[in-house]
Design a protein around this nucleic acid. Structure first.
Lengths: 116, 116
DNA sequence: CTAGCTTGATACGGATCCGAAACGAATGCG
DNA sequence: CGCATTCGTTTCGGATCCGTATCAAGCTAG
C-alpha cells in the first residue's frame, strides 16, 4: 500500500520535521551527517568507511570527520575489524538508536497532524 | 484523511529525501536555510527578517546571511517596505518556486516507492 | 621478505557558519 | 524638534566543514 502525498502535504511534513530539528536542543547535524547516521541505522551491517563513502558519493574524509563528530555525541561507535585490521566497522549505540527513533516519532507525529 | 506512517517507513522516507539532496548537484542548503526557505514558501506573506527569526528561534544575523546566500542563488528576493522603510520584505521568486516544487516531487516520489 | 595495493586517518588552504556586539537608518512618541 | 526605540546589516573571533593530497598501518602475491 503506497503512501500518497500531495505537494502541500509533502512540503509541510518536510518543513515541520526540519523545524523540529532546528528548535531542538539536540545536536544540530549536517544534512550529510544525518544521511550517514540514517544509513548506518537503516541498512544492514557491517558498515565500513569506504562503503559509506561510496553509498553517499562523498569522499572518505567526510565520513571520517562525521564519525568523529557523531562519535563524540555517542551516536555511533568505531571498532577495528579483527578479520582485516585495515577496516573500521561502524556500530550503532543505544544513544544513537534513541536519537533515530526520536526523529521517526517526529515525522510520524507531523504526518498524523497534516492538513488535508 | 491523516497520513499514517510506520517507523521504518518514516525514517526510510527521510533518508531517501536527504540522500537525494546530498547526491543532487543543486545547491547544498543548510538545515536552517532549508527551514527558512520552506517557511517563506509555505507561510503567507509578508515575511520580515525579524518575523522569520522569531518563527525559527534563531538570531537575526542568521536570517540575513541565509537570505544573502539564497538571494545569490535567486531563490528569494529582498525589497524595502515602502510603508515602513525599516522593514525588509522577503519575496518568492520563480526559481525558488521551482526549487521548492522539486523537493516536493522528490518526497512524493520516495513516499510512493516506500516498502510496506 | 618485499613491492604494491587497500584502508582509514591526517594536514592543509579555503570557504562557510555561528552568536554577540556594535552600527546606521528610519520611526514615532513626548 | 529631540531622543529613545526598532529594524536590518555588518563586524569580530571562533568553530566547523569541504576536497585534495599525503600518511601510516595492514594485507597479499610473487
Amino acid at each position: 500500500m503506497p503512501v500518497t502525498l500531495r505537494p502541500g502535504q509533502a512540503l509541510g511534513l518536510w518543513r515541520s520535521t526540519l523545524l523540529a530539528q532546528v528548535l531542538a536542543d539536540a545536536p544540530d547535524l549536517t544534512t550529510r551527517q544525518m544521511a550517514i547516521l540514517l544509513t548506518i541505522y537503516l541498512d544492514p551491517p557491517p558498515h565500513t568507511i569506504r562503503g559509506l563513502a561510496a553509498k553517499l558519493s562523498v569522499t572518505k574524509p567526510v565520513i571520517t570527520r562525521a564519525l568523529d563528530t557523531m562519535g563524540e555525541l555517542k551516536l555511533v561507535s568505531r571498532h577495528r575489524d579483527e578479520a582485516d585490521r585495515r577496516n573500521v566497522l561502524v556500530r550503532r549505540t543505544v544513544e544513537g538508536s534513541l536519537f533515530v527513533e526520536g526523529i521517526g516519532d517526529i515525522i510520524i507525529a507531523k504526518a498524523r497532524d497534516l492538513p488535508t
